[in-house]
């Protein structure tokens, strides 16, 4: 069989394949350079950025759970100024769309961040984090109510012409309701899921393990929840969905695509296998070739068929 078409279009962001990095797991594109070329990726989603520098949460920030990992990093980042001046320019050399994940303490900060980042020629899209479980203000609080979520997205849309991706939290009663609200507010795509709020108690110390008490659960343990949410959301919205949560193989990624995702993102899987992203890309191509699929887009949502 000839070439398999892996390229996808996520809200006007042209990607040579559907595999992206998940925000907060790939630094600013420098950390995995020794293991594979960034050029191979569909898109790079860099570490979450805030208006001012954030030192992050207190230690311990990590605890391992069965087939999972709970983190409470707390959006540690050097602030948007340093990101714009020092970190993003070095990504210009790659022929890969760069998507910047943004978080604000208040609605206006999201708008300000969007405006500032739109000035960079490197940035091809904004992922709006309304789902971080690890910060006191903003974060998940914005993503838990349809009205607040829509308000943030409208603010961002007002401040940028870049494609706007809303990153949703799984820690809600009805994810479809939030998805429809952000779509209505103008979101050009939807990322889901962020991490699931969780905690572990050290029974010897009789205390929570994490310095921040709770954190976000990721890894293979959360995958069925993520696939279910992509399935529910992708059938109800018209905008493309980026699926993420526990992907470590092409087979995992295919579940998300068949559930309706246009693209997928890899995070914790990359910590386990530093070549995870490229292994998944290759695995997707192999699957298509073996199964006579000419275009990966033909697999999107196939599991909906009765």
């Amino acid at each position: 069989m000839k070439e398999v078409k892996l390229s996808v279009d996520v809200a006007g962001i042209q990607m040579k394949n559907p595999v992206m990095t998940a925000s907060g797991t790939f630094g600013f594109g420098e950390v995995y350079e020794d293991f594979f070329s960034n050029e191979l990726l569909g898109a790079m989603v860099v570490k979450g950025v805030t208006l001012k520098a954030r030192k992050g949460n207190s230690a311990p920030r990590l605890v391992e759970t069965p087939a999972g990992l709970i983190n409470s990093i707390g959006l540690e980042n050097p602030g948007v100024k340093v990101v714009l001046q020092e970190l993003l320019p070095s990504l210009k050399k790659y022929d890969v769309p760069v998507i910047v994940n943004i978080s604000g303490n208040v609605v206006e900060e999201y708008g300000e961040l969007a405006g500032l980042l739109s000035s960079s020629s490197v940035v091809k899209g904004l992922e709006v984090n309304i789902s971080c479980p690890n910060v006191k203000e903003g974060g998940m609080a914005f993503g838990s109510s349809p009205e607040m979520a829509a308000k943030v997205i409208r603010e961002v849309k007002k401040s940028t012409n870049l494609p706007v991706i809303a990153k949703l939290s799984p820690n809600v009663t009805n994810v479809v309701e939030i998805a429809l609200a952000v779509e209505e507010a103008g979101a050009d795509a939807i990322s889901l899921i962020n991490t699931l709020l969780g905690m572990v108690i050290d029974i010897k110390r009789k205390k929570p393990v994490l310095g921040n008490i709770m954190g976000g659960l990721s890894g293979p343990a959360v995958r069925p929840v993520a696939v279910r949410m992509v399935w529910q959301v992708a059938q109800r919205v018209k905008v493309p969905v980026i699926g993420m949560g526990g992907i470590s193989t092409a087979e995992d990624a295919l579940q998300f695509i068949m559930a309706g995702a246009t693209a997928v993102a890899i995070g914790t899987g990359q910590f386990v296998n530093p070549c995870c992203c490229v292994d998944v890309i290759k695995g997707l191509e192999d699957f298509c070739r073996k199964n006579g699929i000419k275009n990966i887009n033909d697999l999107r949502g196939v599991a909906w068929n009765e």
């Binding site: 995995y32 920030r61 990093i73 540690e76 910590f271």
Partner: peptide
Amino acid sequence: EAVMACGVGACLGCAFKGYRDGEEAW
């Protein structure tokens, strides 16, 4: 030593309180 996830500086998980350029930092 510390509990680590990525081991390469990606996840920012193995943080401890120290000093960088004279200022407190993780």
